[in-house]
Structure formats: structure tokens, C-alpha cells
Write a protein that binds this DNA or RNA. Structure first.
Ligand code: FES
Ligand code: FES
Lengths: 130, 130
DNA sequence: ATTAATGATACCATATTAGTATCATTTGTC
DNA sequence: GACAAATGATACTAATATGGTATCATTAAT
């Protein structure tokens, strides 16, 4: 089981690349450098644009550049965008709200681990990767 | 995104229950207590049996009991059985072995987090849950 | 012999992830 | 203004993983 999907992974690579190049970067360039299928890469970048991580420029000479500083973009933020809420401790009992929830030993222990992981994933930013 | 699947979750519950009852426990009892679909529960228990976590007894009065002590059964072991190798840091570059692997900053950082999580998930055992 | 249990296996359903295809819109260049 | 080069939006398909069912074989207590 993979904890980081291709989506997130490609997004991180693209962001690293873009962050290194101060100028606007077009999809074609990213595709060539990263070897990701073009339409897939486009979809990813468009999502990052919608979520205000990237800024886009249409027309000739257009492309993408970071909208926020590389320090503000953490792995966990990207995972959240492409994989939804990442959680260790979901309860699978039938009822929406588990009656056992308050005293569930497993849940308590997992929450601690989870908090720890999130804190660490928050510290890994695009800035710290390039 | 859930990090623990139903498979694993149900397995943990079943193991907790079985661990509390010293006698052999039949599927029917587990199904009633835990509210898991019977055939699904069976599949899970059979797998735990194959992996030598449970011991099974056929015939009338049969069922399952722990084959190893509750202290030896950790969450990570169960996740591994039902979800395969759990990994934070898979590389998605095309080549089977990533040429970048040695110097990949992301990989290095993820490995540290991963080791940490595994250590903690190893400490949560059936014994510590009941 | 019967019955109550698990073993093994094949199958189906649903959700998630990965990827493609198409057309609309914007913008720089001539 | 026409054209070309870029992204925006959206809908679709394919592959994989997860969740669950169905069926028949085997074992063992009574
Ligand atoms: S059993 Fe529901 S939260 Fe643990
Ligand atoms: S890019 Fe392949 S291991 Fe990081």
C-alpha cells in the first residue's frame, strides 16, 4: 500500500521544478523534463491552480509559476489536495458516529501517531526539497 | 484517504475479541458481536490462520484461537498482511530502479518519518488494546 | 450417518486512481 | 484582425484495489 499517490508525487516534482525556475514554466517543458503524460500533468497543474498553489498564464508564452512561496507548500498540503483527508484512525463500525468512540483504545493511540506524522509532513516543504 | 482498511480493522477487532476469550471462538459468535458480514469475516480469519496468527479447529465446537501471544500481534503486522507493504516513500519514476534514488531529498526525509511511524505501530499490540 | 464447524476458490460489486480526449477561452505576435 | 500557442473546463475510459458473496470440499464431535 502506497501512502503517496502518483498525483501527489507528480505534483511535488512539478512544484520543485517550477520553484527552481523563476520564470513561467509551460506544461510542455515539465512533460519533457519529468516524463509525465501531458494530459495528466495538465490536470494536476490545473488543480494546483484552482487551489491557489500555482498561478497560471494563458496564451503564447504562458504557463505556470508559484503563487505562494516554496516554504508554504508542504507535502501534507499536496497530499490533502490530491488524496483528500489523510487519516490513520477512521472507525469502520456501521454507525456514522461510533458509540464506542470515546473509550476506543485503538483510536486514542492512533491519534497520537497521526499528529506526529502530520507535524513532520508539514515540515517538508518544496523549499526544503529543492 | 484511509490508512487502515476494513480488512485490517475487522481483523484487529476479531483478534481483540478472541484474545479476551480464552476458549475457541467460532465465526458465528464474532459475526454477532462485531456485526461484520459472515463470509467476509471468514475470509479474514482464514487469512490470519494461514499467516499463523490464529489457529483453527474444524468440526463441531470448532473455531479459532490465538496461535501466538497477544503481545506479539502488532497493528503493523496486521496491516502488512491485509494491505501489503505499507510505504510512504515509493518512487513513481518510470524505471523500476530510480536513477535519482541515491540523492533524492524527498525519499530521505520520508524514510525517517516512516521508520518512526513503523516503530510506533509496532508498539500497539492486541495485548495493549484489550 | 449427521451435523456443525472451517478450508479453498472463484466470482461479483464498488470505489479509487490513473490517464485520455475534446472543445472552449485567453493572449501574444504578425 | 487572423492565427497560433498556451491554459480552462469537462467528460469519458482504463486499470487497480477494496469490499463482499457464493459454492463446494474437508474435518471432527456426537
Ligand atoms: S471502535 Fe469506533 S472508534 Fe474505535
Ligand atoms: S525521484 Fe526516484 S527516488 Fe526520489
Amino acid at each position: 500500500m502506497k501512502l503517496i499517490t502518483r498525483n501527489s508525487d507528480y505534483a511535488l516534482r512539478a512544484l520543485c521544478y517550477i520553484s527552481k525556475h523563476k520564470t513561467v514554466v509551460a506544461v510542455d517543458e515539465l512533460v519533457k523534463k519529468l516524463g509525465v503524460p501531458r494530459p495528466f500533468m495538465r490536470k494536476i497543474l490545473q488543480k494546483l491552480n484552482k487551489r491557489n498553489i500555482l498561478e497560471s498564464f494563458k496564451g503564447q508564452g504562458g504557463g505556470f509559476k508559484l503563487k505562494v512561496s516554496a516554504e508554504e507548500i508542504s507535502i501534507i498540503k499536496i497530499m490533502h489536495i490530491f488524496q483528500g483527508q489523510v487519516e490513520l484512525n477512521g472507525c469502520f463500525l456501521k454507525k456514522a458516529v461510533c458509540p464506542n468512540r470515546g473509550k476506543c483504545a485503538l483510536r486514542k493511540k492512533l491519534r497520537l501517531i497521526e499528529e506526529n506524522v502530520f507535524k513532520q509532513l508539514k515540515d517538508i516543504t518544496i523549499a526544503s526539497l529543492v
